[in-house]
Design a protein around this nucleic acid. Structure first.
Length: 414
DNA sequence: GGACCTTTGAAGCAC
DNA sequence: GTGCTTCAAAGGTCC
């Protein structure tokens, strides 16, 4: 009990903060003595960097107001559209408690309850029964009632994964989106945040990538023996049977044994054309027609390209001159107040100056300007932002799985 | 009460 | 090495 530290996490800076308990690192690692003494030196974190993280982590009560919201969000170019899909000139004030006080660590606490680095770590949550999504009971520690649960907590606490750049961004911006859009549903908010994330400039994203990198470093130092494997498979596996039986897609299970074992290319439906062909094959195209079909598809693309060469050229110029987003495969829910003010496909939500990207065009009635390997603009900071590799077929909210679309189409990496 | 939804990125896992 | 899966946050929704 003594090795747990009550910490405060604020959700969006709005409601009273729930207290988190973080065990000291040595609770998990018998030998982390290298950690706390001077983390900043080991991690190479300097003062200003700590301030960067300060918005995600706890701050001393007095110092909050002195610090601008993290990343010092400057007013962004204002788009004439209403709020949520875009960056807006946020009223620079977060909700009164914009400090996002979160957590502290017994080993990291300085005299003022702060680690010298200012980067206490959020990764640990008590092993409450609700450790999956609601790892911590918000009222559990906030309310001054006796805490019988604390008595029986010999269970091993759960060390969570460090947050990646986008998660850090979500944490910071969620409150703003909620305030602007009066939305509460996280799924919708996350859609908005995902779009805003793409609307960020490289430099803005780089800040979060850097924060995430530091977060991982710190996490690694705090829990050197921890591995993502520790939490792997703890959540219940999503029932893929549903998706496999999904009649709308239904492509994954119908392949005949011969085709499924034939070649890797036949099972890969990553590109749009391949997706086409996969469907066709499932509909009963013979193997012999396969090369011909591909040839036809290629010819069609070539013809379309020639037909729209001028347009494609213009588009190419735009692509080269406008910061490119990774994916533009997102649609907004119509229901939310922040839903698109224009079209239902979310295109209006896009930054007006940004062009349609190949993926979008592939879905637009206008023929796409051919799959030319457009040279990407100077590729940006995301230090280690690999191409999106995963594929989450989750057909639901939008009827069409955004993730499936986005990831199957393998929108180009930034 | 718990899974799902939704997003991106990191890491694990399987082949 | 490549591609797929899982998990991280969050809170409403649904079963």
């Amino acid at each position: 009990m003594s090795n747990k530290v009550s910490v405060v996490q604020q959700s969006h800076g709005m409601p009273p903060l729930p207290l988190l308990q973080y065990p000291s690192a040595d609770h998990f690692n018998p030998s982390p003595p290298h950690l706390p003494t001077d983390m900043s030196q080991k991690t190479g974190m300097h003062r200003h960097q700590s301030q960067d993280l300060s918005s995600f982590y706890s701050l001393p009560p007095g110092g909050v107001s002195q610090i601008t919201p993290s990343m010092s969000w400057q007013p962004q170019p204002v788009y004439p559209l209403s709020s949520c899909g875009f960056r807006q000139p946020y009223s620079s004030s977060l909700p009164s408690s914009s400090s996002y006080p979160r957590f502290s660590h017994s080993l990291m606490l300085g005299p003022s309850g702060m680690h010298p680095t200012g980067i206490p770590h959020p990764a640990i949550v008590p092993p409450s029964g609700k450790q999956e999504h609601d790892q911590y009971d918000r009222n559990m520690y906030a309310k001054p009632h006796p805490e019988p649960k604390r008595e029986k907590e010999p269970k091993k606490p759960v060390i969570k994964k460090p947050l990646n750049a986008f998660m850090l961004y979500m944490k910071e911006m969620r409150a703003k989106v909620i305030a602007e859009c009066t939305l509460k549903e996280s799924a919708a908010i996350n859609q908005i945040l995902g779009r805003r994330w793409h609307a960020l400039t490289r430099e803005e994203q780089a800040k979060y990538y850097e924060l995430a990198r530091k977060e991982r470093q710190l996490h690694m130092q705090l829990y050197p023996t921890w591995s993502a494997r520790d939490n792997y498979g703890k959540k219940k596996r999503r029932k893929r049977e549903k998706q496999q039986q999904d009649p709308t897609t239904g492509m994954s299970t119908n392949l005949p044994p011969s085709s499924s074992s034939s070649s890797s290319s036949s099972s890969s439906c990553s590109s749009s054309s391949m997706e086409h062909t996969c469907c066709v094959r499932d509909d009963g195209w013979s193997q012999s027609a396969w090369p011909l079909l591909r040839l036809l598809l290629f010819l069609r693309s070539a013809w379309m390209f020639a037909f729209s060469s001028i347009r494609a050229t213009n588009r190419l110029i735009t692509l080269l001159t406008v910061p490119r987003r990774k994916k533009k495969c997102i649609r907004y829910l119509q229901g939310g107040r922040c839903a698109s003010t224009h079209s239902s496909d979310g295109s209006a939500i896009d930054s007006p100056s940004s062009p349609l990207y190949p993926f979008q065009q592939a879905h637009s009635p206008v023929p796409a300007p051919a799959p030319t390997p457009t040279p990407l603009p100077p590729s940006p900071p995301p230090p280690a932002s690999p191409p999106n590799k995963h594929h989450h077929p989750r057909p639901k909210l939008l009827g069409l799985s955004i993730q499936t679309l986005a990831r199957q189409h393998k929108c180009p990496p930034p």
